[in-house]
């Protein structure tokens, strides 16, 4: 840092107490706990070491799985639940092929620990196909041929589904900004764009 700013600025200008008071309900929790010495030590239930059996709610079903703290959600889905639609590109960084929905939010399963999503509804790409019933995003990807090798496709489909849920009448620019977190190597973005645009226009 090259010295401090010339701009005069005042601090928050209130004591911690007033901060807690003024900051509303979310901060109240802090006040209560900081006042209660016995709560300072985390109880045993909040610390996990070694394998633990937990229940994940995946595609509407409660599934028992055994995880370690270091186990990723992607690993559990693929190796324990046989839900291999979410792909593992074996990268440590995010790439989108592992996209699932957690609490309705598009989430990279590969950078999410399984323990992070305990108790939250998880939806994988497989949930977008129920027998002959296909989610319009799946149908749209097929219609516009938004795929070649198909390896990035399921993650892209889920990202598109989550994106359209959030932005049902998205513009081209919004689509391009929203779906920039998914990588395709074959080069299928043109079809995917057309699919997303059509669904956005028709009310996805």
């Amino acid at each position: 840092m090259s010295g401090s700013s010339k701009t005069p600025r005042s601090g928050p200008g209130f004591s911690r107490r007033s901060f807690l008071k003024g900051s509303g309900a979310a901060m109240a929790a802090t006040a209560i706990v900081t006042g209660a010495e016995e709560a300072l030590v985390a109880d045993d239930n909040t610390v996990v070491s070694g394998p633990k059996e937990i229940t994940l709610n995946v595609n509407g079903q409660d599934r028992k799985v055994t995880v370690e703290p270091r186990t990723s959600l992607l690993e559990v889905l693929r190796d324990q639940l046989g839900l291999t639609g979410s792909k593992d590109l074996q990268d440590i960084y995010v790439d989108g092929a592992d996209t699932v929905m957690v609490d309705g939010k598009a989430t990279y399963a590969g950078t999410t620990f399984a323990l992070q999503v305990e108790g939250k509804p998880i939806r994988t790409v497989e949930s977008l196909r129920d027998g002959r019933n296909l989610d319009p995003v799946v149908t749209g990807f097929v219609k516009h041929d938004g795929m070649q090798c198909g390896y990035c496709t399921p993650g892209f489909v889920v990202a598109t589904r989550a994106f359209l849920d959030q932005n049902p009448s998205a513009t081209l620019e919004e689509i391009q900004k929203g779906l920039g977190g998914n990588i395709c190597r074959c080069g299928t973005y043109d079809g995917i764009t057309k699919c997303a645009l059509e669904l956005a226009k028709g009310g996805a």
Binding site: T30, L40, A42, T46, S49, P69, R70
Partner: peptide
């Protein structure tokens, strides 16, 4: 990844103690 333990505190104070 080496094994580690995983803590999910409910409060700032718990988090700070764990950290």
């Amino acid at each position: 990844m080496n094994p580690f333990e995983y803590a999910q505190p409910n409060t700032e104070a718990e988090a700070v103690a764990l950290l």
